[in-house]
């Protein structure tokens, strides 16, 4: 059981309403991100490099949540992504689990409100995510994937750039909830 749900259950009833809303958002937002990834690149193929589910995971973990909650959150998002792919289930799951864990532990050390830090962390985790996925694909599946560091750095920047406004919106949503 995660810290998050613990907190949810033990929270005062006055806050129940808003917490329920928050829970709904927590489910809907990654779903939208995944749908975006599945749907939009059909028309704008360039956007297939935008890892929204990853950014959502990072955002969640950076929000000073316990590592365990982040681990489960990342895993769930990853598993859904896996189910929509044509590869063994668990690949994205493991990667996003790790991302969730590390992002959560990092959040306890850095000032995650700072946009520059957010930018750097998003960039870092994108790179980490891609690299670790590649390692897994090679090591576990033996797949002959090609890892292009330059390209990954470039798309890391793209993702980090998207992360800034995205995190801002998500924070707003959180506050609203």
């Amino acid at each position: 059981m995660s810290e998050y749900t613990e907190r949810l259950l033990t929270s005062p009833s006055r806050k129940n309403q808003s917490d329920r809303l928050r829970l709904v958002w927590l489910i809907i937002i990654p779903l939208i991100a995944i749908l975006f990834q599945v749907y939009v690149p059909r028309f704008v193929s360039f956007l297939s490099y935008l890892e929204l589910p990853l950014l959502i995971t990072v955002h969640f973990a950076l929000g000073r949540r316990g590592p365990i909650a982040s681990v489960f959150y990342g895993m769930s998002i990853g598993l859904v992504q896996d189910s929509l792919s044509h590869q063994p289930i668990g690949m994205f799951g493991i990667v996003k689990t790790l991302v969730g864990y590390f992002a959560a532990s990092v959040s306890q050390r850095f000032d995650v409100e700072n946009p520059i830090v957010t930018f750097i962390l998003s960039f870092f985790f994108y790179f980490f995510h891609q690299f670790f996925y590649w390692v897994l694909a090679r090591a576990l599946l033996g797949e002959a994937m090609i890892f292009d560091p330059q390209q990954t750095l470039l798309f890391g920047l793209l993702n980090a750039a998207v992360a800034l406004p995205l995190f801002h919106i998500l924070d707003k949503l959180k506050v609203a909830a």
Binding site: L140, E143, A144
Partner: peptide, 12 residues
């Protein structure tokens, strides 16, 4: 050739 865990061969 590269062989993945499913036995698929791919060529790089």
């Amino acid at each position: 050739v590269e062989v993945d865990s499913f036995g698929n061969q791919r060529r790089l």
